[in-house]
Design a protein around this nucleic acid. Structure first.
Lengths: 199, 199
DNA sequence: AAATTATATTACTCATGAGTATTATCTTAC
DNA sequence: GTAAGATAATACTCATGAGTAATATAATTT
């Protein structure tokens, strides 16, 4: 701690990772402008110039965090490919699985999620990507007659993303609900609607 | 323009209003930190110290804008009281009317909405208030058996707010949809769900 | 018409926080 | 054991932008 010079092993990598982790925390909690490099390095047990050994600027590390989030997210949606589907019950659980994986991902990367999904200027673009992806899936199911023909699936996708957003902040990050619970509630609401069908 | 001294009539009020209008624009477009007092006063045809004749600080004018938004919003929801309801068709159109008034309000106050609903730290609290209000209404309808008994209405309310949020940004503020269209789509989706009932 | 008040300006201060120049020290390779 | 490279510190610079002190001038009041 506070020692000058080269340490045993790959200390550089560790310092860089420490900075990244702490920066994610700080940006997530305080936003870009109210996060100070000086605070980050202090928490990492370093001094200001060391920061610039690993990142060229405050903007750069912020971008790196956003990129990490976006990259992981794209990887997630890439892997959730659409199996040709069977009957309605399976469709529901298939959709639930997709939602669970999203909520789990957000839960496992709370800081990155806050940054990339709520703080970054790029958040809108990232969400646009997710909306496009969800829209595609919904359109496929719609063409297979699983969904009503008269719905604008892009709007539905926006609503779902909105719901995910809101529930992530108010239920997931407050530990009030699990990914499973949230996914099931969303499926239930969107698939069957609010209307009471008995009576 | 650029004239010193007192002008004819109540110039002070006009200057203050000009500053408020321009500040709303700037904050909405660039956020708090990237908005500069110097830019605001320049656009208002004034110089920096004049700003401090009307507002005690940058924080203060920002808060004033948030408060204006919040106040107007509360006024809006106060006035949308729940008439004892009739049958299902009327229920749908009643909900639609409520949503229309929200979207119209957002549309009429785009800058304030961006600030109070998306930029301010207080945005979460403001949304919490709306969620509470919507939850109340939904619970009443649920007790009257218009809605399914097995739904958690707070979660439904969060989903609806999420949908409103998202559609406001992507459809309303881009002029792709009208308040009426958005309200109807939301009612349609949430009331009846995605599921294809014929087949 | 003199005093007062409102409104505005010019010309600053001052804190903050990002980023840098220079130097020191530890490890590893030869 | 010495040179080289990596990792760190001390001690700065420098731009920016919020906020202020002092002053000027037009309209209003007395």
């Amino acid at each position: 701690m506070g020692q000058r010079g080269r340490q045993k092993g790959s200390v550089g990598v560790k310092s860089k990772e420490a900075i990244l982790t702490i920066a994610a925390e700080e940006f997530a909690e305080h936003g870009f402008h109210e996060t100070k490099i000086s605070t980050i390095v202090k928490k990492a047990g370093l001094t200001q110039p060391s920061f610039y050994l690993y990142f060229s600027s405050k903007e750069a590390i912020f971008q790196e965090l956003i990129h990490t989030f976006h990259h992981k997210l794209i990887h997630l949606t890439k892997n959730s490919r659409i199996e040709p589907n069977l009957d309605k019950n399976i469709l529901a659980s298939k959709i639930a699985r997709g939602l669970i994986s999203i909520f789990k991902f957000f839960d496992d990367h709370r800081h990155l999620t806050k940054i990339g999904f709520f703080i970054a200027d790029e958040a809108e673009e990232i969400k646009r990507g997710m909306v496009a992806h969800i829209t595609e899936n919904l359109l496929a199911e719609q063409q297979d007659k699983y969904f009503r023909q008269d719905l604008n699936m892009q709007i539905v996708a926006e609503c779902i993303i909105g719901a995910i957003e809101r529930l992530t902040i108010t239920k997931l990050f407050t530990n009030e609900s699990t990914p499973q619970q949230l996914a099931n509630e969303i499926v239930d609401i969107y698939l069957y609607g609010l209307q009471n069908t008995e009576s």
